[in-house]
Write a protein that binds this DNA or RNA. Sequence first.
DNA 1: TTGTAGGCGTTATCAA
DNA 2: TTGATAACGCCTACAA
Lengths: 307, 307
Amino acid sequence: MEENRKKIEDAIRALDFRVNEMARGLKTNRTMTVGVLIPSLDKIFFTSIISYIENVLLQHKYSIIVCNYRDNLSLEKEKLKFLLDKMVDGIIMVPMGRDIEHIKLVMEKNVPIVLIDRVVKGIDCDVVLADNLNAAYNAVEQLIIRGHKRIGIICGPEDIYTTQERLKGYLRVHEDYALEIDHSLIEYGDYEIQSGYHLILKLMDMSNPPTAVFVTNYEMTLGAIMAINERNIRIPDQLSLIGFDNIQMAKIVKPSLSIVVQPIKQIGETAANILLKRMIGDNSNFPFIHRLKTEFLLKDSIKSINT
Amino acid sequence: MEENRKKIEDAIRALDFRVNEMARGLKTNRTMTVGVLIPSLDKIFFTSIISYIENVLLQHKYSIIVCNYRDNLSLEKEKLKFLLDKMVDGIIMVPMGRDIEHIKLVMEKNVPIVLIDRVVKGIDCDVVLADNLNAAYNAVEQLIIRGHKRIGIICGPEDIYTTQERLKGYLRVHEDYALEIDHSLIEYGDYEIQSGYHLILKLMDMSNPPTAVFVTNYEMTLGAIMAINERNIRIPDQLSLIGFDNIQMAKIVKPSLSIVVQPIKQIGETAANILLKRMIGDNSNFPFIHRLKTEFLLKDSIKSINT
DNA sequence: TTGTAGGCGTTATCAA
DNA sequence: TTGATAACGCCTACAA
């Protein structure tokens, strides 16, 4: 008996037999495929998340179809439709946030979907993101505690959820400490290197420049550091700086950079696990917003001001 | 007649009818899916290429399954096998290069495969890559022409194809100009930020440091610049520098950085187009190595030395 | 030209 | 428990 089973298994291996996923799918209506849709394939924050998603889903025999929409709303719609055409069993996406009809369509078709990084109003849907508001709150609070009163912030695009949340944190902590807000210290960029470069200089060129600046994503932090080095702006004597997202970079820069670290691994894995759960029909706690805690790394780029 | 046709088409649209890819695939033995396998999802060079691959293939109704192997040989094999299990119609991959058995297996199964960025010995296979050798040759030549004699190079890992090619270019141009090679000027890193940071400092800390350094990928260039800025090494007075790959960065840095630019868009699109060709059974010119020309951007980071 | 039946490889159902 | 059979949706070949 046992011997036979072994023989059969050997034969299966020898013949390199494997199930035909398509025939199976035709019968079961499952493709064992998950669509992943992100704004851009050259933002390391998104692609890193994908690597963790891939890691989890692969273990469950799911493959991921990756699409990006180049920060373009109509492309976002198009690619989402493409994924539906491909009959993916589920979708993980970072929505642009401007429109929701295409996302609603997915939900109407009962294709499980998990949103990442951004909450979208008007949709009841699982979401996984970092607690951007408190991340910003805590970061800026560290500056306030050390006596800073004129704190600049370099935000992302005004209509993106993460921008709004991070700015809210900035505003709220000012309110809680009864600090007046100078709106000329609030700059909106586009989450690209250039923005960080130009906006930090714009802030420093003010007649009354900030004593500290909080930069709210990785690419802009990179740009800001480049500008700071070129101008020989001394960190932290002349300017205290808080960056975002990349631990490696924070370690390399001197003085070491204080940064907000998003739980990238956890975001990816959580999103994948929720989706797996939904795909097997477990709809407990739906919809659930996983607001994951960020970490703040306090390093040498912040100076205490004597008041 | 015409009216009927229109009515039918309207009905199709209204009912939101679409072909079942799985049923079709079961019959045609095609999944309309392409596997893309890269070393790492957090190297922007690879992910950018993917975005162009995606762009081309999507237009032909192909979706891409993205996998990464985290610079790990056994993971590379595992994921390649996974893609075969998924019955992808074709594969585009950046091979590690240490082993070829798994790639041979793909070819034996007659699944079209296109390699990117790295040539692998012992395999007859379409390859798309940048002309790394001449890229390095031309870059270093610009330094030599301007009187530099002690030129450092920061390479990638010793066993990676691109490392070897770029180093060959460095060595060959030295030979052609009858310049002696000081092997202490040749450093091997790992294509990560830290390498660039540490190795540029190691070079500059030599008793007889180079007057120019060529850094051979984006991440290491980033690290090198950070180190240079921290140390206040003056570019180009104290050191001439040539970086790699990222035009944005080159523009932002002051003085503007001379760089080697790989034709990322072309690499991705070419690979996708060759694969499309192979997948429809067109095996003309097989195997073909597309060695695409790089561009050299001459900027302010290079100084002429009077001799 | 138009229409219809059979089969792709799997799973699910039902009968033995 | 086991084994035969229909059905999934599309494509293709062949018949009308």
